[in-house]
Every structure is written in structure tokens, then in C-alpha cells.
Design a protein around this nucleic acid. Sequence first.
RNA 1: GCGGGGAUGGCCCAGUGGUACGGCGGCAGCCUGCUAAGCUGUUUCUCUUAUGAGAGCGAGGGUUCGAGUCCCUCUCCCCGCGCCA
Length: 441
Amino acid sequence: MIDIKLLRENPDLFYDSCKARGFDTKILDQFFQLDEKWREKLKTVNHLKHEKNTLSLEVSESVKAGRDPSDIKEKVREINTQIGTIESEQKDIDESRTKIVRLIPNLLDSEVPHCMTEDEAVLVKTWGKARVFQDDLDYFNKASNGMDYQLLDNRPASHVDLMQDLGLVDLERAAKTSGARFYYMKNRLVKLELALVNYAIDFLSERGFEVVEPPFMLNYKAMEGATDVETFKDTLYKIEGEDLYLISTAEHPLAAFFQDEILEESALPIRLAGMSPCFRKEAGSHGKDTKGIFRVHQFTKIEQFIYCRPEDSWDFFSELVKNSEDMFRNLDLPYRVVNICSGDLGNLAARKFDIEAWFPSQGKFREVVSASNDTDYQARSLNVRYRTKGGSKFVHTLNSTAVATTRTLVAIMENYQLKNEKGFQVPKVLVPYTGFETITL
RNA sequence: GCGGGGAUGGCCCAGUGGUACGGCGGCAGCCUGCUAAGCUGUUUCUCUUAUGAGAGCGAGGGUUCGAGUCCCUCUCCCCGCGCCA
């Protein structure tokens, strides 16, 4: 949630930010209308309550003095009915206003490129040597600004074919029991997944993160604080008859962990590594990545999360991106980093970098990591503060994928395919965790 | 699921229907060679700011001129019992 006071004092900041995001500024106009009304009602109500309080004391004095307080009581009763009507009007206004305020996106950081679509994201850097099939070379060179590559004679098998040929997944039966975008993962692929998870946990532990397995469901209040309406609408599964939602990422329970708390400044930064399944409806993505395990309703993810002081948050943003990059370097998966467009950021992030791995079979760079600095936006919604000499202030929160298992597994299967045999190699760094070096027939 | 006990400011804790007590911590100031101690003030949110006013005792209702206090519903925590991977 944005800072209402800042909005009142500096409307232009928000108008500019919303425009750059392609966000309709009408709701800002609506906010100011409602806010004006709300303050009027508040003034009236406060005035009436003051009268009421004064008269109530007079009742007590009357009784002590042995006088009959009936007429004063009658007056207060009249005031009470007035307060009742005006307060309920004020409450209605407040609810509409709050609804609107929660829709207003975070202020953009100045380094966010002003553009609208996924494809316009600005290239920040590239790493690694990609395996590129001839037909994809033009796209590859453009998308990577000429990063290092090795030309392939044949397009590698898709991860779907590979998994099915190797008996690593059963998608048909998953469709039968659960529907599209589900999977039964089997055999060595399960072990490889566990290896990824264990590797990520060890990696982040060494870098000062506390490992956390959070609740996989959150109630409405926590979820509303941790995320935005878009997520509710397009992403979240609700448990029927309960005030519970399945999490779509460990970010949300980790963000809500300190809800309504005040942290000591000396405790910051707090680095958490969350491990959880992620449940996503994927509404509105019909027709995209329909096959295999690239885009699914359920996957496991290790998530980095940081609480810090506002003045430090951009340093920690770099740290999160670096951690994720280092993991993909250690996995030896070629990637590029992009600075996400103002129009493609989502409501919470002030700035967002994605890491996109190269997928040789798809011939594309695809998102495997998303790192955001939410500044004080999420912390304000969740009311997470820290104590300073000048009083308590909202912390900044940041999050970044470390590893999302399914997508990373796809990246491994596409990048590590064997030449003369059906199958693929296990990245060196994972071998100590799997105990095997290849997955073949 | 059953029975009992709880929830009050950053923390701890008191509170026979009539301005929410006190302590600790934090902050500001005073004081003393330094430090510590001591003394004084202050401490949440909202609106308006010259001042001021309102709200706030787990959440939501109710009774009352007036509710931390009385009544109802719910949530969470602790203890015991039962059930259970």
C-alpha cells in the first residue's frame, strides 16, 4: 500500500508514476474526491463526540449534586443517533477509499525503463556460453546483444519428449486425476529436484539466510497484506469454507511473518530463505506453455526474502540478484538479466530484474528468476516497522527466486542434453546431491 | 473435540460502570571530573494545527448518558483430558 499522506502532499509523484506504468490515473482523482468527503465527515463526527463526552460528564456531576440528569441524557441520545448516521456514511466512504488506495501501485524507481511489454525489457547483462540452433541465431544475437554461443546442428528435444521417453513424468494420468498443468514426477527427476532444493538451501545458508518452511496457506488478512488484487484474481486457490488461501510463493508467508510487529534496528537486515510448494491458477495464460512442466499449477520454489532499512534496500536488491546469478552460474546455465518495463512491473515492485535462462529447444530466453524491491509498499500493507531514534518506520522488503524447481529442471534438460544418446547430464554442482551424473534410458 | 485459565501502549503489569495505574525500555532535557545513578518531561494512531479534538484495553456486536469493566458471538495463546501421522 502506498503512503496516503505522501499522496496528499505530492500528488504529482503518483500521477507520473501511474502514467509510466500505463495505469489509469482516474483512481487518483477518485481518491482525492473520497478523501475530501471522508475528512469532512470525520470533522463532524469528532465534533459531535466531543459534545457527547462533555455531556456525559455532566450527567455524572448532576447525579453527584443530586439533580435530575434526564434532559441531558435525552440530548446525548439525540447526538448518538446523529453520530450513528454520519459514522456509517463515513465508514462507507472509508471502505471505498481503502479499496482504491490498495489499487494504487508503488512509486517507480528512477532506473526503471519506461516501456510497456515483456519484450521491451532492457538488457542488463548476459552470462555463459549458450547452445544455439541455426534457425534461432538471429533472435539469439538480438536478445543477448551478441553473447557467446556454440552452434547446434539439430534442435535439442523438447523437455516434454525427453521426460516421457525417459519415464520421468506422467502427464496423461495427472490430467485424468487433476487436470491440465499437473504432473506426476517420477524416478531420477524427483531426485534431481531434491538435489536442486538441497543445493539451493545449502547455498543460501552459507550466505547468511535463515532457512524457513512456512505455512502453505495464509488467511485473507495476511495474504491481502502480502500481495495485490491481481494475484488474488488470477493466481490464488481458495480453500472452500475456510479463511485460507494456498500460497503462490513463499514470499507471501515470509512477508507476513512479522505482520503488525516492530523490529529492532539492530536485527536488520533479516535474510530468509523460504522453501515451499507454490500453487498457481495460471488464469489468463491459456494456450501458453501448455505442455510439460514449464508452466504448471504446482511447483517447489526456494525464495530469498530480505527485510532491511530503507537506505539499504538497493544494496540488498543487488545482493539478491547476485545470489540468484551465482546459483545459475554454478549450475552452468547461460542467462541474461533484464530490467523489467514500468508497464510490466506489477503493483508492488519499485523495480524488478528478471533472470532469463536460455532454452535451446524453445530457442528463447525465458524467466527463471524474478527479483523485486517492494520498498515500503508491502511493509506498509502488512504493518511491519522497525524502531529508530526518531520513532518507528516501515522496513523495506525485497524478494527474489533462488530456484523454482520445474523451470530450472526444464532448463537443465534442454541445456545438458547428450549428443549420442537420449538423455542429459546432471550439472556438476548437483552430482554430490544426486549421486548420479546422467539421466538416460 | 471437552474442561479450566488468559489476551491492556515497544515490553511487563494494575484496574468495585465515571479522565487507562504503575514499572521497565526508548527519546529529550537537567545534574554531577567521566561513566553509572538520580531528577524532570515525553512515548500509539487519525484529523486539524497557534491551539485542540477524536480514537485506541484480542476481533465484532449489544446494554447504558457513559463499557477495559456487564451481556452475546468469534479468533488466538497457555494448562489438563481425549483423538491422531
